[in-house]
C-alpha cells in the first residue's frame, strides 16, 4: 500500500500547459495563464470539457470560451451552488426554461442603475450569498 501512496500521484498527475496538444490548448486558451496552478482534478475536468467541445454548436463553443475564465475563478462553493440551481432549471419543463431565458434577456435591458438598485435592495444580513463576479477563490 505504501507503493500506491508513492505511485498514485505520479500516475494520476495531469499534463502541464506546455504538454497539452495544440488543439486542446486552443480550446482551453482562456485558462492558459492559470493552467499550471490548477489542481489535477480540475485539469481532468477541463480536459474532458475540451473533448466535448468539438461536438458543440458554434454559438455554444463561443459561450464556453467566453465564460471559462470567470467560472474557474469562482470558489468551489459558488460553483457548487450554481450547479445545483442549474440542475433544478434543467429538470424543469421546457416552457419554464424558456421563460427564464426570456426573463434574463429582459433583465439585461433594464438600465444599469435600476439593476444596481435591485442588487442593493437585497443587501441585508443573511440574504446575500456573495457576488460571483468579484469573488476570488481557488481556480478550478
Amino acid at each position: 500500500m505504501v507503493s500506491v501512496a508513492f505511485a498514485a500521484p505520479l500516475i494520476i498527475m495531469t499534463p502541464d500547459w506546455s504538454d497539452l496538444p495544440t488543439d486542446t490548448q486552443q480550446v482551453l486558451a482562456p485558462l492558459g495563464p492559470e493552467w499550471n496552478e490548477l489542481e489535477s482534478a480540475s485539469r481532468r475536468k477541463w480536459l474532458q470539457i475540451a473533448e466535448r467541445y468539438p461536438k458543440m454548436r458554434k454559438d455554444e463553443q463561443e459561450r464556453v470560451q467566453r465564460r471559462m475564465k470567470d467560472w474557474a475563478k469562482l470558489t468551489p462553493e459558488q460553483r457548487k451552488v450554481t450547479r445545483e440551481k442549474f440542475k433544478n432549471v434543467r429538470q424543469a419543463a421546457p416552457e419554464q426554461r424558456d421563460a427564464l431565458k426570456q426573463m434574463w434577456s429582459e433583465y439585461q435591458t433594464l438600465p444599469a442603475d435600476e439593476r444596481d438598485r435591485l442588487k442593493q435592495s437585497t443587501v441585508k444580513p443573511g440574504i446575500r450569498s456573495g457576488n460571483p463576479s468579484t469573488a476570488v477563490g481557488p481556480t478550478r
Binding site: 475536468k45 470539457i49 459561450r63 464556453v64 432549471v89 427564464l100 446575500r128
Partner: peptide
Amino acid sequence: AEIDSALLSDEVPPSAYTDQGFLE
C-alpha cells in the same frame, strides 16, 4: 465536465443563477 459543459454553453450564463439583482 457534463454539467459544466451544459452550464457554460447555455444561453443563460452561470452568473444569472447567483445574480442578486436578477433574483430580486
